[in-house]
Write a protein that binds this DNA or RNA. Structure first.
Length: 473
RNA sequence: UCCCGAGUAGCGCAGCGGUAGCGCAGGUGACUGUUAAUCACUUGGUCGUAGGUUCGAAUCCCACCUCGGGAGCCA
């Protein structure tokens, strides 16, 4: 059993910096590869996730466990290294660590270990989601995702927004955003039935909460409650959609940021949305240089210029009516013909943002018939104060609106949408007591990570994706 | 959910009616301040599952399952 002395601990990221040359340090991590030299030593590539790059550890053959352990420690093994950071005589790195002691903490059988030195497909890596963070790609995605989350909090915190935790389990049977997952503790084999009903309806009064409950599809309605007291708030947490969507842009469980601002109209909403996205992109460019270089080289060549371009340019703003006009006059043939009143299809959105403007586009003032009940009705009574931010490659990344603050109009709109205003008594109270103009939007975290990294499939930007027929890990 | 496409060794793929192949990974050996190291030899597969056609099916037909691309729904 090898034991090492107690030295200052250094991350792999730090050990790569020339300023540490001459220091005696301790490192730990996982072996990426081992290369042996007959000249009397072996090289270990050691990675601990602190950076894309691994550090080269030089293991001389006079280490006591060299023959017995180190020559058998390859990809996947966890090791602890003590040694000196030295200038590297080899090409490809400024520093390396000359080991005085290497302890193998956990072995790894190379014959059965699924990861290889050579690249494997993302499809295969999805089947080993528990091990894929050990690859360069998923390490980079995790670090960039972390930076984006930090920027989200920084942006709002610096502006005095209050972070509000809205519930994950909700009693609203519809929040205006798609199919929901049911939450119940009832016995699914023989659920209690309502008395006197022939059809055998389930009696949710006997359920845990005494009513039917679901996983939230949006924190917006709860967020509005806090915004109409604390002025500016944001929610940031998981949301759930039980839609049978099988695409590279949809998840059943995903994270969403939803700011809500009182005393704010649609223009203010659009300004915040634009500043917000630019802040995230700027932070990633400044703080994740190494990872972004990797994405530019291996995943999507355009990723750096795309982000830089967006940070430096103004978003295009055009009304839905103008957008339809532009599409009609484009001469472009679409699978779905354009006509005022229809919802814009993916192909239309992408044509606008990718072909016409080549930068983010904010489309606003959509027809009332295709948007949610809570969006403020314009004076023309045909359109609502909704806005979508469209970006090249991903399409819709933000959806938001100024909210309807007039009680009567909101009630009418609810009924139009087939909702029962009585069930939303608490939401309507916000309009009964001290109502104010307010607005907000939702940003899908995973789509943002996709856009920033250029990763083609949304299943590869969340650690453990939940999609139809898939929840293994 | 709909329309395409694909499921052959641990991974990436070829074979497309006549007794299963390549590259990488793994193993052994050689060589080397190496860096996706290189060279030689080598282990490994009831060809997604279940039916059918045929003397004979990885190959043709049917169903199902899973995965991928696109669409719808949306973030």
């Amino acid at each position: 059993m090898t034991t090492c002395a107690n030295l200052e601990k250094l991350s792999v990221k730090e050990s790569l910096k020339a300023e540490h040359i001459g220091k005696k340090v301790k490192l730990s991590g996982w072996v990426r590869t081992r290369r042996d030299s007959k000249a009397g030593f072996s090289f270990f590539e050691l990675n601990d996730g602190s950076s894309m790059k691994s550090v080269q550890v030089l293991a001389p053959n006079d280490l006591s466990n060299y023959e017995s352990e180190l020559l058998h420690a390859g990809i996947g093994c966890s090791i602890e290294v003590e040694g000196e950071v030295v200038e590297s005589p080899g090409k490809g790195q400024a520093t390396e660590v000359k080991a005085t002691c290497i302890k193998v903490l956990g072995g790894c059988d190379p014959a059965s270990y699924p990861l290889q030195k050579k690249g494997t497909s993302f499809e295969f890596l999805r089947t080993i989601a528990h091990l894929r963070p050990r690859t360069n790609s998923f390490g980079a995605v995790a670090r960039v995702r972390n930076q984006i989350c930090k920027s989200i909090h920084d942006f709002f915190q610096e502006r005095g927004f209050i972070y509000v935790h809205t519930p994950i389990i909700t009693g609203s049977d519809c929040e205006g955003a798609g199919q929901m997952f049911k939450v119940t503790t009832l016995d699914l084999q023989k659920p209690p039935l309502k008395e006197g009903t022939k059809s055998g309806e389930i009696n949710f009064e006997e359920d845990f909460f005494g009513k039917a409950t679901n996983l939230t599809v949006s924190g917006q309605l709860s967020g509005e409650c806090y915004a109409t007291a604390l002025t500016n708030i944001y929610t940031f947490g998981p949301t759930f959609r039980a839609e049978n969507s099988n695409t590279s842009r949809h998840l059943a469980e995903f994270w969403m940021v939803e700011p809500e601002m009182s005393f704010c109209n649609l223009e203010g909403n659009m300004e915040v949305a634009e500043d917000f996205l630019k802040r995230i992109f700027r932070d990633v460019l400044n703080n994740c240089e190494e990872d972004m270089k990797f994405f530019a080289e291996r995943i999507d060549k355009t990723v750096l210029e795309r982000l830089t371009h967006i940070v430096e340019s103004d978003f295009v703003r055009l009304s839905y009516t103008e957008a339809v006009d532009k599409l009609l006059k484009s001469g472009q043939k679409f699978e779905f013909p354009v006509e005022w009143g229809i919802d814009l299809q993916s192909e239309h959105e992408r044509y606008l943002t990718e072909q016409v403007f080549k930068k983010p586009v904010i489309v606003y003032d959509y027809p009332r018939g295709i948007k949610a009940f809570y969006m403020k009705l314009n004076e023309d009574e045909k359109t609502v104060r909704a806005m979508d931010v469209l970006v090249p490659g991903v399409g819709e990344i933000i959806g938001g609106s100024q909210r309807e603050e007039r009680l009567e109009v909101l009630e009418t709109r609810m009924k139009e949408s087939g909702l029962n205003p009585e069930e939303y008594w608490w939401y309507l109270d916000l309009r009964r007591y001290g109502t104010v103009p307010h607005a907000g939007f939702g940003l899908g975290l995973e789509r943002t990570v996709q856009f920033v990294t250029g990763m083609a499939n949304i299943r590869d930007v969340i650690p453990f994706p939940r999609t139809p027929k898939s929840a293994e890990f």
